[in-house]
Design a binder for these strands. Sequence first.
DNA 1: TTGTACTGTAATAAAAATAATTACAGAATG
DNA 2: CATTCTGTAATTATTTTTATTACAGTACAA
Lengths: 136, 136
Amino acid sequence: MNNGRFAIALHILTLLDKAKGELLSSAYLAGSININSAMVRKELSNLREYGFVESKEGKNGGSILAISANEITLGEVYQSVRQLSLLGNQKNTPNPKCPVGKNINEHLNNLYNDTELVLIEQLSKQSLADFSKKFG
Amino acid sequence: MNNGRFAIALHILTLLDKAKGELLSSAYLAGSININSAMVRKELSNLREYGFVESKEGKNGGSILAISANEITLGEVYQSVRQLSLLGNQKNTPNPKCPVGKNINEHLNNLYNDTELVLIEQLSKQSLADFSKKFG
DNA sequence: TTGTACTGTAATAAAAATAATTACAGAATG
DNA sequence: CATTCTGTAATTATTTTTATTACAGTACAA
């Protein structure tokens, strides 16, 4: 992993939790996060796919949590924004003639996968509600 | 984290372990990894700072492990190449007027730090020797 | 003592990934 | 039917990462 999307997603979800069912517009969310509202809508679109939020179009529209903050773990949030492998192996094209080079990607992938599972397990110990509680 | 340096560092260290004390040149290492030898030397420079390798300049020079592969854990390798926080928070300048925005960086940092500790703990279960063994 | 084969490092350039912006069609409300 | 939203695509900008080039300095060996 490697991007700020986790922070943005979690920020959005925390704000929605605090709003307690009131619809929040992407412009409002963007104001708190201090990013562009189109970025917020893009992230909301992803969160929607994962079933974390629902949005209402049109005037007075906005977004709310689709499920309770207790039912969303930070591990799930992580997975929703995850794109690359944890330790990043964008390209990695070692020399296949070298016994190490030939096999390192396989071993690296196993290592990354195992490690990421532990990371997700750790993040999953905390729910969105737990996180949100920290904000007084 | 976020970069391919972990893979490169581990690749270098594995090759050095396999070489069993024979000096390997940056050109040779680069050939197996399939990257530029200046990149290898840069990474070797870092690994040297961490005490993992030693290099010898001049003709017939090259690098060797400075300590036993049993004494190097993958957690330490991770830490040697680590630069950003695990989940990436390059910039993140939320609105300080928002109760969530004002405090989220602190909570995020705590979360990232805790999570990274667990990740390092997990990686530290495996030594370079363990990893190297996988390559027949 | 000099040619050769290395390392060390800095400066620069290229590429890739990420983030931001702009734009506009479509939906819901009043 | 004007207004205020969302959804999404297209584009641009920025930042990060990776690669390249260059060259001084070191050590060996004839």
